[in-house]
Computed example of a mutant assay.
Amino acid sequence: MKREKKIIVGISVGDLNGIGPEIIIKTYEDTRMLELNTPVIFASGKTMQFFKNHLNSKISFFNIDNADKVVHGKVNVVNVWKEPVKIEFGRANTKIGEYAIRSLKAATKALKEGSVDVLVTAPINKHNIQSKDFNFPGHTDYLAKELEGKSLMFMVSDNLRVGLLTDHVPLKDASNHINEELINSKLNIVLKSLKQDFGIPKPKVAVLAVNPHAGDSGVIGKEDDEVLRPTIEKIKNKGELVYGPYSADSFFGSNTYKSFDAVVASYHDQGLIPFKTLAFGEGVNYTAGLGRVRTSPDHGTAYEIAGKGEANETSFKRAIYTAIEIFRNRQEYRHYSKNPLKKVTK
């Protein structure tokens, strides 16, 4: 029986003053993880050794100069920098932001070159990463540019998947961004991702309304009747199972979401508040729509507990599992797309 290829997971270290290095170390202290994948952390051996000592961890790191020299069965660390870094737990620091971006850029380069199979990103501080050379709201927008795709923030857990029509835009501007082109683009990404990334051949998707009570027939806004509803109908007429717009206030509380394979929210907090209420600490942020697989945990830098050894690695570990699952699903999807008869006789 042919053994499955061990997937190489590239890991950007995130904000060093936050909990990123801690959750990475706690994840790979469980040596069983090395049976499932081979990690490559983009940071420096000295920096990771500092965190190992601080946490009194027994983890062992294997230092390499580039990801092409990865050794399976080891927790590999690519030396992106060699100088010592001053760590001040819980402090937002622009210099630390620079290291986070150096790690991200090196990991993304390795992903593009195929030295790593998937990318899992530890949390960053969106404020201290901003510079003349890096002017993106966060990971998602940067990776969309680098990996040349139309991205979608897709929050996923065992029984809940939430995508967003608009993500990191001010609430006052969200409805101005929602038009037929955007809706088509985002829903096409969701539908394709559910098919190729999650193995759902005929996905069923719900779309949440922009306005309270879906606009109440235009009394509380016209966007739902004039933009969302007709666009959804056009997509349905193409044979896709897309429904809505649904009033968002009762959608999750009534468990209606359980009848769908994914839910698409109109704006950031409309989707992420219920998602994080139902799945916080166990959910995964997946960037759908790109040619490569990237996931991250569903939380931020958690400065308030950084350095205290209290961080929970569950979401980060799930981000790794999800990246591996999606990578394999994509391989299978491509295989059977080229050989459709094989799926029938499988």
Rank of each mutant, 00 (worst) to 15 (best):
A214L: 11
L165F: 08
G239W: 13
V207Q: 12
S185T: 07
V162K: 00
E223A: 05
N159Q: 07
N188C: 02
N179T: 10
S175C: 06
I178F: 05
E223V: 11
F198Y: 14
I183C: 08
E181F: 15
A206H: 03
L164H: 05
K222A: 11
A248C: 12
E181N: 14
L194M: 08
V169H: 07
S247T: 13
V210P: 03
L194A: 08
I235D: 12
D224L: 07
Y243H: 13
V205T: 09
L228F: 11
P170V: 12
P245A: 02
G199M: 03
L187Q: 04
D216S: 10
Y246F: 15
E226H: 12
N188W: 01
A214H: 09
P212M: 09
N188S: 09
D216R: 09
L208N: 03
V219C: 12
K186C: 02
P212T: 11
K204C: 11
N179K: 11
Y243G: 04
P201F: 05
Q196A: 07
D249A: 07
P203L: 05
I232T: 10
V219P: 05
K238G: 10
S217M: 10
E180A: 15
L191T: 09
V210C: 06
V207R: 09
E180I: 12
I235K: 12
A206L: 08
P230K: 01
L160P: 02
G199W: 06
K234E: 13
H168D: 06
S250H: 05
G218S: 14
P170Y: 06
D197Y: 09
I178P: 00
N179C: 07
L208K: 05
K195T: 02
Q196Y: 03
V162A: 00
P230S: 04
Q196D: 06
V210W: 00
A209M: 06
L182H: 00
P201N: 04
L171T: 08
K172F: 11
V207T: 13
